[in-house]
Amino acid sequence: MGRVTARKPVLRIRDGRSTTRPDTLTVEEPMELRVGGRPLTITMRTPGHDFDLAAGFLVGEGVVHGAGDVAGIRYCAGATAGGTSRSESGGGGNTYNVVDVALAPGVAAPDASLERNFYTTSSCGLCGKASLDAVRTQTTWAVADDPLRIPPETLATLPEQLRAAQRVFDSTGGLHAAALFTSGGELICLREDVGRHNAVDKVVGHALRGGALPLRDTVLMVSGRASFELVQKAVMAGIPMLAAVSAPSSLAVDLADEAGLTLVGFLRGSSMNVYTHTERLAPAPVGQPSASPVPVPPVDQYLSLP
């Protein structure tokens, strides 16, 4: 089982006085994702919920669309990220840093254009023509007609709920979070990671493995800014609203507008900016309640493997 935190010595200076003490830091390690034994990408992530991370990444790239598309996910015993063997790396046992996804019969392997034989940083992920084309041509579910309606007062409660549930952040101060909420403002699932995009992948992968896609009538809340890549992942999972505590990028707004997703930025207390599809920020018409959310696996124990 991979560690999510580590203790390191630090020189602390406060008001001209210095002390040496251990500090709790977030662990960042590489995880290599393989599909059918073939390396696809390496991402820097916080260990924990690695199978969700792998599944969610493949949803975002348009490779899988439901639980039935995945035959199995496993750790590769004796392998380390980057292709070295256990004996070559000098370690013992399973490092939990190489994950292999077996696709179900009939599910096409990832297109060669998606192969990324280099590191994807935890800070920004990677997006480009392949990802953009996947959103425009491979989206399984349209979010433009999603019936989600949520009052601004309910939306305003989400940042505090997200922050209160960030257990590892409390000890390290160095993790992003992504959380899925119902239209009634109830927390469904939360994941933490050093990378915003990884946290979202873990949420989406959790839903996919539970057979809950598409995530209609839900809101995805993220702790940082709203990038193009996060909008992409939300759309590919069938999520109709993405809310962030910080700013969106111009490309994120363009994609959200095109896809029919409601994008909210600077969500802090009762203040927020709604950039696209503002009609969802209102109660449902009298006599026409919003659709019941799809059944999603409940919040489970944080950062347990796989």
Rank of each mutant, 00 (worst) to 15 (best):
R196E: 13
V264E: 01
A112E: 15
A226L: 03
G60W: 00
E160H: 11
L158T: 10
V253C: 11
V235Y: 02
G90V: 06
V219A: 00
H206W: 11
G287C: 12
G287W: 06
G238D: 00
V245Q: 12
S113M: 11
L303Y: 08
N117D: 13
V63K: 03
G211Y: 04
H197S: 11
V200A: 11
D15K: 10
V219S: 04
V59P: 00
V264D: 04
L267H: 04
D145S: 13
P22S: 11
T41P: 03
V231E: 01
D146Y: 00
L267Q: 02
V10W: 10
V35E: 02
S227P: 06
I42L: 07
M236F: 02
K8L: 15
L213V: 06
V63D: 01
G56D: 02
V299G: 14
A144R: 14
S223D: 09
L40N: 00
Q138W: 07
V59H: 00
P151V: 07
D52Q: 10
A81E: 01
M272F: 14
H49I: 07
R45P: 02
A104S: 13
A165G: 09
G128P: 06
K233H: 11
G2F: 00
F51L: 06
G265S: 15
G210Y: 04
V10P: 02
G174H: 10
L114E: 01
S271R: 13
P159A: 12
A142F: 05
L155G: 00
P159T: 13
A130R: 03
S271F: 14
C124E: 13
R191C: 08
V27F: 01
S249K: 06
W141A: 09
F181P: 00
G72H: 07
L53K: 02
F228W: 06
P159N: 11
R167N: 11
F228C: 08
L215K: 03
G128D: 13
C127H: 08
R225D: 14
T19D: 14
G125A: 08
P105G: 08
G128C: 11
G72I: 06
S131N: 12
Q288E: 15
N117Y: 13
V10M: 10
T20A: 14
V101S: 04
V204I: 15
D23I: 07
H277S: 07
G83N: 10
M1C: 07
S87Y: 11
S223M: 04
D50F: 01
